[in-house]
């Protein structure tokens, strides 16, 4: 007596194939927790920064060169210099979690962290207290 029939094998291979395909689809659709930073000058989106590049750099936007950002290797971004009087933007510290934001009101510059692709169940709709 054979342990496997030929048709059993087909079914097993078929199920494995379906699982593999579903897993790949699931990973690409749902398991993305990569994020990006959107930089706004007043209400206009002027720059989008990939936070998962592992890159480290200091930069500003052409619309307001007195405001300087730092992108860190760990995927966070912060205001590091500004000519504003209250420095509330710098005090907000490093941002990396979806929903976080910080703004330099006197200069009209805002940074907001958004998902790279699909919004995840886990993501906060917004974050306060920063």
């Amino acid at each position: 007596m054979k342990f496997f029939k030929r048709t059993d094998l087909i079914i097993i291979v078929g199920i494995l194939a379906v699982s593999a395909v579903s897993w790949v689809v699931y990973q690409s659709v749902f398991a993305e927790d990569q994020s990006k930073a959107e930089i706004y000058y007043y209400s206009e989106l002027v720059e989008t920064v990939d936070l998962n590049s592992g890159e480290e750099r200091t930069f500003s936007i052409p619309q307001e060169e007195n405001v300087i950002f730092q992108l860190y290797r760990d995927g966070s971004i912060a205001f590091v210099e500004s000519d504003c009087p209250d420095k509330v933007c710098i005090h907000a510290g490093k941002l990396k979690t979806v929903g976080q934001f910080a703004a330099c009101l006197p200069n009209g510059v805002m940074v907001k962290i958004v998902p790279q692709k699909e919004r995840d169940e886990e993501d906060a709709d917004l974050v306060i207290g920063n």
Partner: peptide, 20 residues
Amino acid sequence: TPWKVGIQNPVDQNGKDLNK
């Protein structure tokens, strides 16, 4: 689903450990 609002942890201002 309900809205989800994160509260920044004042001890660690670096984006981790939120209460949602």
